[in-house]
């Protein structure tokens, strides 16, 4: 019999293909792990951005990881039942983003307001003397900001 802890340990090694320092667990896209009485492992995932082409890749990575670990009977499902938002990125994940040079999304209460896109701390020099240049970037989940202090562009994992 597989245990939930064993499956979690396996999934902790599956990384976001576009942000290779961030595991899918820290990203918060694994919403449920269930092991049935027949030892079938059920993993539920939810998309970050609905048009993100990496989602299918992430699902396949999960399947490959389970297969390689010898899990024979499993099912990986995509679902909107527990929708993802950036508050689901763990503290560990936020640190990893920062170290990667991507400003982590601010944690918000109730509903994210677009005001929280202003004065994001620069991941290089930590100054908040920054300005949102465009809410779109090299991937769907990133916005582009400019730091007036160290005078360079930086990317932010944008709040959703």
């Amino acid at each position: 019999m597989w245990t939930k802890e064993e499956i979690l340990a396996l999934l902790a090694k599956v990384m976001d293909p576009e942000i290779p320092v961030l595991s899918l667990l820290d990203l918060g896209v694994i919403t449920d792990i269930n092991i049935t009485q027949e030892n079938q492992v059920m993993v539920r995932m939810t998309p970050t951005f609905s048009g993100c082409p990496a989602m299918e890749y992430m699902r396949r990575s999960v399947e490959e990881t389970l297969t390689e670990a010898g899990v024979q009977d499993f099912k990986v499902q995509m679902s909107f039942d527990k929708p993802w938002n950036t508050n689901k990125i763990t503290a560990n994940g936020r640190k990893a983003l920062q170290a990667f040079g991507l400003a982590p999304p601010p944690v918000y209460q109730v509903v994210p307001d677009l005001d929280i896109l202003e004065h994001i701390a620069c991941p290089y020099c930590n100054s908040t003397n920054t300005i949102l240049r465009t809410p779109f970037g090299p991937t769907l989940c990133r916005a582009m900001h400019y730091c007036n202090n160290c005078r360079q562009m930086f990317e932010q994992f944008k709040p959703l």
Partner: peptide, 20 residues
């Protein structure tokens, strides 16, 4: 460049929405 990226990103989002 920013508008090229913006329209391309919105295109990708909209395809994601239609898929849903």
């Amino acid at each position: 460049l920013e508008e090229d990226i913006a329209f391309s990103s919105m295109a990708q989002d909209k395809l994601g929405h239609s898929l849903a």
